[in-house]
């Protein structure tokens, strides 16, 4: 004959503790797995802009990043950037170089494309366009969120690679061509995968898409 055994007080406490532990473990796993959980999503349609023709929307894993380009500071560089965007060539291109808390770099159109990343040469690729001369004479405050063209591997020229600063870098003035500034979605940039001890990232994050605002709105 079965007899019903009543739980002791300590057994009840142990059971509650185990249930709480399980909830904590599962929720921690979800939180750790989802690095974008606490990143505020930028909804482009909720924002208003004055110079819509100079607004870029970059979609990455943790949401949208809005960049305002500055053609009055660097007309040729901005024209090049817009041209590559218009041809959708930045889509699925890796953030191949991430210096934690300092900058993220992307735009190697030759060796940084998703599905065709070449880890030996990434960061040294060329676009189909010719190199352009830097435009770094005008004053520009390189601050957190500033976007600039990276120098090509063949000296003091530029091609397609660009960087976004995660912290200020006043010494960059006169060294790099400024392209613009991030106006919204900075937090998403801080979640881009870094290379731990190396600046170059193995299995990097990618730009999902990079579009001019009018193209999205249409």
């Amino acid at each position: 004959m079965l007899t019903k055994i009543k739980q002791s007080k300590s057994e009840k406490i142990l059971l509650i503790f185990l249930i709480l532990l399980t909830i904590f473990a599962v929720s921690s796993f979800v939180l750790i797995k989802n690095k974008c959980l606490f990143v505020e999503k930028v909804k482009v349609d909720k924002l208003t802009f004055e110079n819509r023709e100079n607004i870029v929307v970059m979609n990455i894993n943790c949401g949208n990043v809005i960049i305002e380009l500055l053609p009055e500071v660097s007309p040729n560089a901005v024209a090049r950037f817009k041209n590559i965007i218009a041809n959708k060539e930045y889509d699925n291109v890796a953030f191949h170089r991430v210096v934690e808390n300092f900058l993220v770099q992307a735009g190697d159109l030759e060796f940084g494309k998703k599905g065709n990343v070449n880890y030996t040469y990434i960061g040294s690729g060329k676009s189909k366009y010719s190199l352009i001369k830097p435009e770094k004479d005008k004053p520009f405050d390189f601050k957190k969120g500033s976007v600039g063209f990276a120098k090509s591997k063949n000296g003091d020229m530029e091609d397609s690679e660009f960087f976004i600063l995660l912290s200020e870098a006043p010494l960059f003035e006169g060294e790099y061509t400024p392209l613009g500034n991030v106006t919204h979605g900075f937090a998403a940039l801080t979640k881009i995968k870094s290379g731990n001890k190396s600046e170059y990232v193995l299995r990097p994050d990618f730009i999902n898409s990079l579009r001019m605002l009018p193209e999205i709105s249409n």
Partner: peptide, 16 residues
């Protein structure tokens, strides 16, 4: 050691 190396390099002067 690794932490120090990584942190020390993450600045504008090292970049330049």
């Amino acid at each position: 050691f690794f932490f120090t190396i990584f942190q020390s390099k993450a600045d504008q002067i090292y970049e330049l």
